[in-house]
């Protein structure tokens, strides 16, 4: 998912306060978690819990802001003013999501600058779905439908995760997400009612995005390193494979209504399981993109770094102006 890369070790970006391990505190913490309660920012928490959260929340945040780029690629070319406004509002929302999540991570004693630095230096991961290129306008619809659809599926359970600031950020995000998937599907419906060329464009986009969307849920449960502990801590509530199955089941019907086919001949209803079966996932491709060899990895990161570096003089100027202003005020007083 947006935090699929959790299953990959990461260094850096975490110089927050270290908790002193303490059995009495630990027992209280465990009891709170077991009772389905919330841990708040200033509460004692085990160091591993804090670290895992910083990693998960910041990866999620990075994914939101890197995720602005592939869709942002089409804002200036949107075919109508209505679609331009919708897309801009949607991409802007993703920026907001990044912002809420960085703020949630900051409650754990790391600064946003440190987290961004980890992103910019390649130490932190983000969801590799955003390393795929957006080639036609239909990609904008398919991303809303499939990528946001997959994201929503993962994010809803996180609204009840054990860390209060993260859970509250997710509640806000989920409220906003509901329009993302719908606008994408609506865009595709309109295209499917159009010309053959438009329908081909949609099918082509589905062909390119289906498998990467399925991969967003991360490795199979049996290959997922951190899942067990995260589930115990209530920061990962449903397993990768269960979420993936839920997503596939929900999506097949939507594809039918739309009139597109998924590029998976093995996709079919299994009455015995009560679920759709799907074909084998190409994990080599997944790991290749995660490990930096996707088409967009270099460009996406470069775009983020450029925005950050180009903005340095602006950020510095604002601080310096405020320093001067306060000094002038002091002098006047």
């Amino acid at each position: 998912m947006y935090t699929q890369a959790l299953d990959i070790p990461q260094q850096g970006a975490d110089k927050g306060p270290k908790a002193v391990e303490n059995p009495a505190y630990q027992a209280e913490f465990d009891a709170k978690i077991d009772a389905g309660g919330y841990i708040e920012a200033k509460d004692w928490m085990p160091e591993a819990y804090r670290k895992t959260l910083v990693r998960q929340i910041s990866q999620h945040a990075h994914s939101e802001i890197v995720g602005m780029l592939p869709e942002g690629n089409w804002i200036t070319r949107a075919p109508t003013l209505k679609r331009k406004a919708i897309l801009l509002a949607k991409v802007q929302d993703e920026g907001g999501h990044g912002l809420y999540l960085y703020a949630a991570a900051e409650t754990l004693g790391v600064s946003r600058d440190e987290l961004l630095d980890a992103l910019h230096t390649g130490k932190a991961k983000y969801s590799s779905i955003f390393n795929y290129p957006t080639l036609t306008w239909a990609d904008i619809g398919v991303i809303g439908w499939l990528v946001d659809g997959a994201a929503i599926m993962n994010q809803i359970p996180l609204c009840k995760c054990s860390y209060g600031p993260y859970a509250r950020a997710m509640v806000r995000i989920c409220k906003e997400e509901s329009f993302h998937q719908r606008q994408g599907y609506d865009l595709l419906l309109t295209m499917m009612k159009g010309t053959d060329e438009q329908r081909e464009m949609v099918q082509d986009a589905v062909n390119r995005w289906w498998w990467p969307s399925i991969m967003m849920f991360g490795p199979h449960d049996k290959d997922s390193v951190h899942s067990g502990q995260s589930a115990r801590w209530g920061i990962k509530r449903i397993s990768n494979d269960d979420l993936r199955q839920k997503f596939v089941d929900a999506t097949v019907k939507q594809a039918e209504v739309l009139g597109v086919t998924m590029p998976d001949p093995a996709l079919q209803w299994n009455a015995e399981r009560g679920h759709y079966d799907y074909g084998a996932i190409d994990w080599d491709e997944f790991w290749n993109v995660v490990n930096g060899h996707g088409q967009g990895n270099v460009d996406r990161l470069a775009a983020r770094v450029k925005a950050w570096e180009d903005g340095a003089w602006v950020r510095d100027a604002a601080l310096e102006h405020e320093r001067k202003r306060a000094a002038r005020e002091d002098q006047a007083a």
């Binding site: 907001g96 912002l99 809420y100 703020a103 900051e106 946003r112 950020a169 806000r172 950020r315 604002a318 601080l319 102006h321 405020e322 202003r325």
Partner: peptide, 19 residues
């Protein structure tokens, strides 16, 4: 409802509104 980064109170209010 959350937080923002801003260099001064004026911009903090404005971006809080925008966010």
């Amino acid at each position: 409802c959350g937080s923002v980064h801003a260099p001064d109170a004026k911009l903090a209010l404005q971006v809080a509104r925008d966010v």
